[in-house]
Design a protein around this nucleic acid. Structure first.
Length: 380
RNA sequence: CCGGGGAUGGCGGAGCGGUCAAUCGCAUCUGACUGUAAAUCAGACGCCCUAAGGGCUACGGAGGUUCAAAUCCUUCUCCCCGGA
């Protein structure tokens, strides 16, 4: 059974980490996370640096103390923001830019400029006392030209190399882990080159990056590439997993829907984080057990088990007078205390306590789902 | 009683002769959301026909002018403001 040791405990796989991007899982307290049974979280280097400042957190005694959370914390490097705030954007601050040195971000609210280089990103993450750090990476639009995609992975690799070097100079602690991010857009050959170059440098984790790259053009995710109707996105994740060392920890960044996580576990991915359960909760899309929602989604695993769940649009009129809990088979705070009708009402009036209950429910669902996948894997 | 201003689709409120079934906001309905620019975004939203498109009824009531009226005129009803 694969697992990793961190300074804040051992992690088992597969594992789902909710995103506390700005230092909190939206609408929840860390106490809520403990109650749900969350084992680790992700927080984001750029936002913490811009909004709080890592020097302060270092002096304070580290991010765990700051959050009052003594379980593992994974820090994302800010690489995603290189994409979401620079590469993919025409809005936001036009002074944001990428050079070979790194990426510059201007905080829209304060005008404060932050230069994130491979080195400063690691420096900040070490200041935070993160358990699992991530190198600054360079995602790119999936439909970018081949030339741009090639350039992007060259930069990606050179940033990873610099990050590793800086990291090694700063710490010898074997329980602080460092992950790198395989890029390469929709190009199998470039993904292979990216993976090989990173493996050569050597990291504790290998991540899949650049998944939801172009959400203006969602077709790339459902584009059928082969006869067995496996979606392109799944095919790419399976392909990349097979490029990575068998025993390495593999983290599929930003994945995904429960079915997609199930698929990814099947093909070798260990760790996942996504904003879906928390954002969808706020937007009224709740995940429930089979037969209790609007739509049933199922996945036939490679161990021949069929995994199934439903989801429901709680804000829809059809739940107006529904006195049942969101999910009869769920023992979370939401389902134990509140009817669909009442939670619907709370969400419709944009009531924060409703967002909280819905978020608790969706994260509870994700946690149960990942533990089921863990059981399947362990019994194999 | 006199003078002035109004009445528009569930609500607020544009339009002031044809391009108006009527801008926009709210509300409502449906959907999307994947390392959070996201308590966000998209579509629908008078009635009827399966869609392109077409038909019908509509801008307080009634009548009129005009090829054409939510838009102009007369009158009625109601509301608001000022003066007796």
């Amino acid at each position: 059974m694969k697992e990793i040791n961190t300074k804040h405990g051992t992690l088992q796989f597969p594992l789902f980490l909710p995103d506390a991007t700005y230092g909190a899982v939206r609408t929840l307290s860390f106490n809520d996370l403990r109650t749900i049974g969350i084992e680790a979280i992700v927080t984001t280097t750029l936002h913490i640096e811009q909004k709080i400042g890592s020097e302060f957190i270092r002096e304070y005694g580290g991010i765990h103390k700051f959050f009052n959370w003594n379980k593992p914390i994974l820090t994302d490097s800010g690489g995603w923001q290189v994409y979401s705030l620079i590469t993919s954007t025409t809005r936001g601050n036009k002074k944001n830019k990428i050079t070979d040195v790194g990426a510059t971000f201007i905080d829209v609210n304060t005008g404060k400029s932050t230069l994130l280089t491979p080195e400063t990103s690691i420096h900040i993450q070490l200041n935070l006392s993160s358990d699992i750090l991530t190198v600054l990476d360079n995602p790119i639009e999936v439909n970018a030209s081949l030339a741009d995609q090639k350039k992007s992975i060259t930069l990606n690799t050179s940033w990873a190399k610099r990050a590793k070097k800086y990291f090694q100079n700063k710490t010898q602690d074997k329980n602080i882990l460092l992950g790198s991010v395989v890029q390469g857009g929709d190009n199998f050959e470039l993904r292979k080159i990216s993976a090989q170059e990173l493996i050569e440098i050597g990291f504790d984790l290998y991540n899949f990056g650049g998944l939801p790259m172009n959400y203006q053009d969602p077709m790339w995710r459902v584009r059928v590439q082969s006869e067995n109707k496996v979606t392109f996105f799944r095919e790419m994740l399976e392909y990349v997993a097979n490029l990575l060392p068998k025993d390495s920890v593999k983290y599929a960044m930003g994945v995904g829907k429960p079915v997609d996580i199930a698929f990814c576990v099947d093909v070798g991915w260990d760790m996942f984080d996504t904003v879906l359960p928390t954002r969808n909760a706020r937007h009224g899309l709740l995940y429930v057990s089979e037969g209790q929602g609007d739509e049933t989604i199922s996945y036939k695993s490679r161990s021949k088990k069929t995994l199934t769940y439903d989801h429901l649009h709680l804000k829809s009129q059809r739940y107006k007078n529904d006195t049942e809990p969101v999910d009869k088979n769920c023992n979370c705070e939401c389902c134990q205390n509140v009817s669909r009708a009442y939670l619907r009402h709370l969400l419709r009036i944009s009531e924060p306590s409703g967002y909280r209950l819905a978020t608790i429910h969706n994260l509870t669902f994700y946690n149960k789902w990942i533990k089921m996948l863990r059981d399947i894997q362990n019994n194999k």
